[in-house]
Amino acid sequence: MYNFDFTRPSSIKDAVAAIGAGGQALSGGQTLIPTMKARLAMPETLVSLTGIQEMKGICTNDAGQICIGAATTHAEVAREVAKSYPALSDLAGHIGDPAVRNRGTIGGSLANNDPSACYPSAVLGSGAIVKTNAREIAADDFFQGMFTTALEEGEIITEVKFPVPQKANYQKFVQPASRFALVGVFVAKFADGVRVAVTGASGEGVFRWTEAEAALSKDFSAAALDGVAAPSADGMISDLHGTGAYRAHLVKVMTARAVAAA
């Protein structure tokens, strides 16, 4: 690790200013710190976002959305939404290990947009809204490919607003070594239709499997997927843990299991 300066502002305004001055946002550091330890990143200043009270905690707004402060840890989410949004709680409660869950935050995970991370599937699958210091971004617009998001330079996520579906479930098939999602599927059934978001599988990061959504919106049952072909293996990640064809196959298997368990 190279030397760096560290600042921990207590307001969004100060954080934005510090990042605007060249600082690197740090929100849990479960990816950034190991990267720095491997000397693959050398920020001059780290701006910790975990001292900002207005970015922490969970509440429900008047629209019935669950609003999660971006600096809220996975462990807190797992605990706090266990009743209000069990599928989201379950997802958060199975990210990494206890150490990761007690340091990592939802905002940090989303801003990083690791193609194998769990949270992007919940956000996209729920049709959540990503709120930043400058604007609100719909999940469908937020994720723009592997490690790429709609965030502008210096823009930070402050909150994520989740509509609560009638039924939902997340199924993760883990990569045996890292236990990130080899394939993770988040299925959410709303009054106006079903959303299916897939993480881990695609080289483009999280995506919606629209063919499955169409079939499940008509008939929310695992059997409804029988006639739906697995997504194309083109563009799926292929590595020593599985080919693209295997991942494509798993997308269908995990989707059916998520529907059955929802």
Binding site: P176, A177, S178, D239, L240, H241
Partner: peptide, 24 residues
Amino acid sequence: ALLEGVSYDENGQILSASYMDYAM
């Protein structure tokens, strides 16, 4: 039997050089 294995690519780079890819 189920998890471990050091993998090299054809150029001799170790593909499983950390616990992210070497399954203990």
